[in-house]
């Protein structure tokens, strides 16, 4: 069952097109990665899906209904934004108490555990927290709320690698016990590649990839070898990237299967990050004549 959908959504700010005819649907009870560069349109997409912003044209739905002023569906969402600010009068415990009254599935024990693990000072005013601690408050709210549809928009600003890993670990563990739909917007793709089950890649306001993560892992391959056999092998495949060093050529190909009989060639799997980077580069004009993955 799809929990969220965009149908031909376009968003313009004056001359700038933030989203350009974006369509995708996301399945319920999965962790989805919304990937893309800064300014790609990820945040705008999530804002439109939660009716915090309005589409210029097209339609967005969550739980099968339009979200604007729709308490029935919005009540099941939680949107942790990168720039989420807390009221000046709030201490950490106030922010958590406020969220606890909003969400019927709020788990106070889990919240307390997370506060301890992230080393958050519960009595400190939110505006006196470090950037990382502010992010941690958002992470605690996003996880402990157990909202059926939770958006994390780059929730890790200022969090160090250890704290980020703690977030990924707790998210995965809690998600296993309480399945729900999580949209994780990030550009730290390597860090989340084992976490996400489905990928939507947005670049310059357009969807470049909308596919299962497992499917993507087998979708591209890097071939290295002498120029001539590599060129022969690459023929007929979509080329995502090419590097040449002397007589050796290294190309990343979409849709190609490794060919063990080609003994002069070396085949390597392509990581999700590599695939995303190469696909984005391809889209940003490096090879405009090439077909883009979809």
């Amino acid at each position: 069952m799809s929990v969220l959908a965009m149908y031909g959504v376009t968003k313009r700010y004056g001359d700038v097109t933030a989203l350009d005819d974006v369509s995708f649907t996301l399945e319920e009870n999965r962790i989805h990665g919304l990937l893309g560069r800064n300014g790609a349109g990820k945040t705008t997409a999530m804002q439109i899906l939660t009716a915090q912003n309005f589409a210029t044209s097209g339609r967005a739905e969550i739980f099968g209904e339009q979200p604007y002023e729709n308490a029935r569906v919005l009540a099941r969402t939680c949107f942790i934004r990168e720039s989420l600010k807390y009221p000046d009068a709030y201490k950490v415990r106030h922010a958590l108490a406020a969220a606890a009254t909003v969400y019927p599935h709020w788990d106070p024990a889990f919240a307390e555990q997370l506060v301890e693990e992230f080393g958050l000072p519960a009595g400190r005013p939110c505006n006196k927290l470090s950037r990382g601690q502010q992010s941690a408050v958002g992470v605690v709210i996003g996880l402990a709320s157990r909202a059926p549809l939770t958006f994390f928009d780059e929730p890790y600003l200022g969090l160090d690698a250890v704290a980020r890993q703690l977030f990924y670990d707790r998210l995965l563990a809690d998600y296993a016990v309480h399945p729900r739909t999580v949209i994780l917007s990030t550009h730290l793709i390597d860090e989340v590649s084992d976490l996400i089950e489905h990928v939507v890649l947005i670049d310059q306001g357009r969807v470049l990839i909308d596919a299962g993560a497992d499917d993507l892992r087998g979708r591209a391959v890097t071939v290295t070898g002498p120029v001539e056999p590599v060129e022969r092998f690459a023929r007929g495949h979509v080329e995502l990237h090419r590097e040449q060093l002397g007589g050796f050529l290294r190309v990343t190909l979409s849709g190609a299967e490794p060919e063990p009989r080609e003994t002069s060639l070396q085949f390597e799997p392509v990581s999700l990050q590599q695939l995303v980077v190469r696909t984005t580069q391809l889209n940003s004009g490096a090879r405009p004549d090439r077909e883009v993955l979809s």
Binding site: Q52, A71, L74, P87, D88, V102
Partner: peptide, 20 residues
Amino acid sequence: LIAMTQVMPFALSLGLTRRH
């Protein structure tokens, strides 16, 4: 005034509507 400038964005992030 602060309720509108500071609390409202937080409230909408938690899925409350403008009307409510």
